[in-house]
Each structure stands twice: as C-alpha cells, then as structure tokens.
Computed example of a mutant assay.
Amino acid sequence: MEMHITPTKALSRFLQLLDGAFPSGAFVHSFGLEPHIVLGFVNDKESLKNFLENIIEDQYQKMEFTVVKKVFALLKKEKLNHILKEDKKFASMLSYQWAKASKDLGENYLKHIDFDIKNKIVKNYFEKVKNKEAYGNELFILSSYAYELGLDADTFLLLWCKKNLINIASTSLKISRIKPSEIQQLLFSFDERIEEKIKNSSKNMSNFNPLFEEVIFSHLNLEPKMFVT
C-alpha cells in the first residue's frame, strides 16, 4: 500500500500566510463582481456560483494554475534562468495595477518567509528578487516557498484558489442580498470542483478573461476592482 505523508508544517504555514488579516497582506482581483451585482447579473446564490465557476474556468485554469505548475516543474529541474523569464513574462500579461500589486505582495511575502531556506534553487531565486534581478510576482514567491516546504503544486493551488474565492465572494456581502450562510455553503461546495479544475488546467497561458471583457463593454464606467490589504 502506497504511503502518503501530509506536510503538516507546510499546511500550517500557508494557512497563516494566506490569511488576509495577517500583516503579510493579500490582494485579489474581483474580475467585475461588483459591476455584475450592480447590473443585476449576480443577484442570488446560483448566479454567484456561476460567476465564481467562470473565474476558475476562464482565468485560473488558463493562467494562474498553468504558471504555478510550470514554476514547480522548473524548480524541480533547477532551471533558474527559465524561472526568471517566466516571472517576467507573467508580469507582462497582467494590467499595470495588477502587476504592481503582485510584485509588491511578492516582495512583502518574501520579508516574512526568507529565513532558514534550505533548497538551493529557492534560495537563489529569492536572492535574485532581493537584488532586483527578478520581478518577484506573488505567485512565484509563494510557489517557491511551497516547494521549499514540500507541498505539491496541486495542494498549493487548492489553498491559494480557495483563499481567493473566499475574498472575492466576501465582496458581495455589503452590496447584495445573498446571505452569508448561503455564501459559506457555496464555498464548501467548491472543494472537489477546484481539484478537478486544477487537474485539467491549460498547458498554455492565456490572459483573455470573458468576465472582465463582458462587464467593461457593458458599462464603461464600471471597472473591476482589486482589493489590497
């Protein structure tokens, strides 16, 4: 029988790091949830569920899930130069505000986790970020730390994705009539679905998001927000 070892220290640390209330901070792009609510596209539990599912399918499956898996593969092969190129490429595919937030949060996370790093490739990458020789996107910093602690890419992505869905869904509390208990039930229902979507993520990155485009073209004065703490 195959033996599975749960990296409890890694899980414990990521529960702490991904908690937006902690000073390491957090940011999340809403992908137009507020405009969707204002325009009446999202008005109940079911429409919110569809909105979050579309974020996973149209955004995360084609971009974030893809790049994290690539980072883990490059870390395993110890290809630092390739990681630096992918780091820069990922930033170039984001909007200016989003790329800046990703870099700021990446550097901030690094201040909290850059101690007792054992893995050579992770240590070298972190040094490049500190010396301004690498962009240091949030996902690249966190992926590298997850690799250092022995988390696999799928487990890290599950934690990261669920954290984002919680943050995005919570923005609907003050401007919609969807009950908190309904949102909790909805988020619980996503666990198995997220695992499936991570498994079936795209092999090539794409930054086209229909949710974003739809709401921008529907109402030019309403813009998807990004929340930073």
Rank of each mutant, 00 (worst) to 15 (best):
C161G: 01
Q97S: 11
E192G: 04
N167C: 05
F22W: 08
N50K: 06
F31Y: 10
Y96G: 04
W160C: 01
Q184Y: 15
D114A: 10
E53V: 01
A26D: 06
N124L: 15
L105K: 13
N131K: 13
E192D: 11
F115P: 07
V42L: 01
V71E: 00
K179C: 02
L110I: 08
S144Y: 05
S206T: 14
S206E: 15
G20Q: 05
S176H: 14
K79E: 12
L151P: 04
K179W: 05
E223G: 05
W98P: 03
F212T: 10
H112N: 07
E214R: 14
E34D: 10
T155Y: 11
F14P: 00
V129R: 00
I198T: 04
K9G: 01
K103S: 06
F156G: 03
G106F: 12
L80P: 08
T171F: 02
L18R: 01
L159Q: 12
N108A: 04
I168P: 04
P7K: 06
K199C: 08
E148A: 04
E64P: 00
L186K: 02
P224F: 02
V67G: 03
H36P: 01
Q185E: 13
K9Y: 05
I194A: 02
L187K: 03
E133L: 15
D19E: 08
F156P: 04
L39F: 01
I37D: 01
F31M: 12
M205I: 15
F140P: 01
F65E: 01
D116G: 02
L52Q: 05
Q16D: 11
K89H: 14
F65V: 04
P23M: 15
L75N: 11
I168D: 00
E46H: 13
I183G: 03
F188L: 12
K163D: 07
L74F: 07
L74D: 02
P7I: 07
N207F: 07
F72M: 04
T6C: 14
V42C: 00
E214C: 11
K132T: 08
R177V: 03
S170K: 13
G32W: 03
K132G: 03
I198A: 04
L159R: 08
Q16V: 11
V68L: 09
N221M: 07
N209A: 03
S102C: 10
Y125L: 09
F227Y: 11
Y60F: 15
A153Q: 02
E133N: 14
N209R: 10
H112P: 05
S143C: 05
F208Q: 11
K49R: 13
P210R: 13
K69N: 10
A26K: 05
S202D: 06
I113N: 07
F115C: 12
V68Q: 04
I5W: 06
I175P: 13
Q97E: 08
S201Y: 00
